[in-house]
Design a protein around this nucleic acid. Structure first.
Lengths: 161, 161
DNA sequence: GATAATAGTTATATTTGTAAACTATTGTAA
DNA sequence: TTACAATAGTTTACAAATATAACTATTATC
């Protein structure tokens, strides 16, 4: 079993394949959980419990219309609740339930475990360079002209005729 | 405009976000082309013209049933043709048309241009470490237990009762 | 010659992504 | 203080992606 010629690809293709491999391993290690999707959202919520939907979108580069369905799904699974912010009645806080808190602990650990495992044979120095580079690449890409995608804030530009 | 707290994410999440950013920039820079999808497939075909569908799947980690539609789409757009291999009549060679060859040249260049741009301010040494790490991570992940996903060869395991 | 394996297809269902239009609320500026 | 813009979130409709299973045709293996 193999991904052929991985080293020949561009950075974008490598990143996409790497994320596919990663999520495939993650799903396997979390098979027994009550949800089978949106692990990254739950992982994020564990560290940012009570943030609003837009915040999740901005952090994970997910479109806000897609996020509606994600939260609906997680509510149905009894992992989170929507709580209206009384000080700004436009937004809802997304809060983990008791069950959600317990389960997300496992998810957080699964992420950590995989990260540890794949870096096990790598020097601390190389790991630092790697993470520094990832940050730089993301920062550079954000500054280049791009299609709107998940950047909801840009959409208004088109509305004016 | 920004991706908040990028540096806090796990490798898998970072890779996914990075690929989203990358493809968003890529799409923008190829807006004028006759296709608006499957750039990585076309980029791959440019360097592997005449390979079969399974080969594309193995290289880009795409499921073979999805690949059927991708190739259908590219045939419709007059970018590629299916040519039956006379020596093994199960497989088709995927061959770029004249139009396809011309267009994929632009795609290949777009990939290269972005890679050059995002690495412009990075030392050759760091780039080497980065690519070496990407390869190592992918290789490690492939060895870990995973859900089947795009690994078509594994599916046979389940067929036997 | 039977069986397994491979390349590719079809069908179906679900999920995800995209665009546009929408409500409700809050912020801002004349 | 009213008008307008911006923000948070939702809905709808449609296109595309993903997953599963069953399928044909062909080739490889024993």
């Amino acid at each position: 079993m193999n991904i052929d010629n991985y080293e020949k690809h561009s950075v974008g293709v490598k990143a996409l394949i790497l994320s596919k491999l990663y999520y495939s391993v993650l799903s396997k290690s979390l098979e027994s959980l009550g949800v089978e999707r949106y692990f990254s959202v739950l992982n994020f919520l564990h560290n940012n419990n009570g943030c609003n939907q837009q915040c999740i979108c901005n952090n994970l580069a997910i479109d806000k219309t897609a996020m509606v369905k994600v939260i609906d799904y997680l509510i149905k699974a009894n992992f989170v609740e929507r709580k209206l912010n009384p000080n700004d009645r436009r937004e809802y806080f997304i809060v983990l339930t008791k069950k959600g808190l317990k389960q997300t602990t496992e998810i957080v650990n699964a992420f950590k475990r995989i990260d540890e495992k794949i870096f096990a044979n790598t020097s601390k120095q190389d790991q630092l360079v790697f993470h520094k580079m990832l940050g730089q690449l993301a920062a550079t890409l954000i500054e280049l002209p791009a299609t709107d995608l998940f950047f909801n804030y840009k959409k208004t530009k088109k509305q004016k005729k």
